[in-house]
Write a protein that binds this DNA or RNA. Structure first.
Lengths: 256, 256
DNA sequence: ATTTAATCTTGATCTATATCAATGGCAGTT
DNA sequence: AACTGCCATTGATATAGATCAAGATTAAAT
């Protein structure tokens, strides 16, 4: 997707509509004190579940998680957000937010009030389209994720997660080979629907196979080909050992 | 949410924008031969993955499943559709459909071309809002579903599915107590991420507990309270026996 | 600087559910 | 009426990954 250079309708001084998601910083005229632009710290909440819906946001820097609450009180992370993501689209449904958004590190957002947004939609086909596209993209993303939950085992889901993160960073001009996880292992486990112990084990396993290198939150992908194989259902012989096989190997090692 | 009686902008002769989702049949002036209205048979495909996106649809009668295809070739059902559902929203993302839609029984849809839709969005705040609301609703629905996949066991997921179906039918003025499943057990299993054998076993189990009655595709809910308990994580004592316990009971029965 | 609290890793065991296998019923076709 | 294919049920077994338990490491707070 190419980046257009001609002027585009914009919703705030920081954002134009020219990039592939929704928002792009216009570096030539950054005004640091624009009312629509705000900085948050790690663990800050952008909005909580049930809060009234009066604006959508574009993540400009940092990262965030969005989660929904089960009746049981269990928190389920539904996605992680990176710069240029649209946030708050869940609010159109019934006028209040279904999700809550918590920042994972120091981050900044552009805020677009509903009134302005509606005006912009009337006046600009481009903005209408970008908004619908953003929501549609989120929907498709979630469908793909659902697919992975239902059809992949833990190793595949984790590999898929790492590869997805990698391309997220790459798409944003950062390194897709080495990056820092902004979320805890608990968050990853919650998101991928597995126990934190499983995440930990799989990460060290991938490391032992020389597929990745993990040092705290820092991940380095050493072998994309193998990492991809982990999720392409290339099962015989599977790259990663199953828990059972590992167990047997352990016993054999001890006996020998 | 109240139903407005004043005239509303409409996209086709069959649809106004007055109900809570998007579409409502205007019974006073049905024109049977409107070009936007089409009938499909069971197993017909509305559109397939990769097909160009040129319209959205509103399901008027019948039911459909939408599915995405994994690299592995595996089909994953991402949702079931019932009358008044908006279909085709996945296409805004990149101009072609990510999903494919297959009807589960004789069904009819209203078709709204993209050109008309865009015109309508410019002219009507109500239509802008309904469309965004529809997408947001789909997004929230999927988030909730994701939550259930990650946090519920098979029995809970199936109970949740049945209760959801029940309220879908109830919301549409049909019986929430007795209804026919339009999908196969294979579809249910695929959607809920479990083996077909598990679906079958759980259904007979729920029947043995006098919570539901199943006869082929016909489901009758006998005890909503108990069915709800199945998913409220009211675990001690859990209503449904685990596979292990069943197995033990079987053995004990045989010994005795 | 020391305490306290998160966070992460690794090992051992348990169990929910997939998988394998067999059978029965029903709908469409010849 | 017999054949074929799909759909559903039920039983026996295997296993991926959860859970339980214990430490180790790092970060935050006093």
């Amino acid at each position: 997707m190419s980046i257009h250079t001609k002027p585009q309708p914009s919703l705030c001084q920081h954002c134009t509509m020219s990039d592939m998601r929704f928002c792009q910083v216009n570096k030539s005229k950054v005004e640091p004190k624009v009312k629509y632009h705000k900085v948050y710290n790690k663990s800050d909440v952008l909005f909580g579940s049930g809060q009234i819906f009066d604006a959508i946001y574009i993540l400009r820097s940092g990262s965030a998680k969005s989660s929904v609450l089960a009746n049981s009180g269990h928190e389920q992370i539904s996605r992680f957000h990176y710069p240029s993501d649209l946030i708050g689209l869940d609010g159109f449904d019934n006028g209040s937010h279904a999700q809550s958004i918590k920042f994972l590190e120091t981050s900044s957002v552009c805020r677009i009030g509903l009134g302005e947004l509606d005006k912009a939609m009337v006046n600009s086909a481009s903005i209408r389209y970008k908004l619908l596209q953003g929501m549609s993209h989120a929907l498709n993303d979630e469908d793909k994720f659902l697919l992975s939950l239902n059809n992949m085992n833990s190793a595949e889901r984790l590999s898929s997660f790492l590869l997805d993160l990698s391309s997220q960073f790459e798409n944003r001009g950062l390194s897709g080979n080495v990056f820092d996880l902004s979320m805890t292992r608990v968050d990853i486990a919650n998101y991928l629907g597995m126990a934190i112990e499983t995440v930990s084990r799989l990460l060290t396993q991938l490391q032992n196979e020389d597929i990745i290198e993990v040092e705290k939150r820092r991940v380095k992908i050493l072998n994309f080909r193998k990492l991809n194989q982990c999720l392409l259902h290339e099962r015989e012989p599977h790259i990663l050992l199953t828990a059972k096989t590992r167990q047997l190997n352990n016993i054999q090692a001890r006996v020998a």
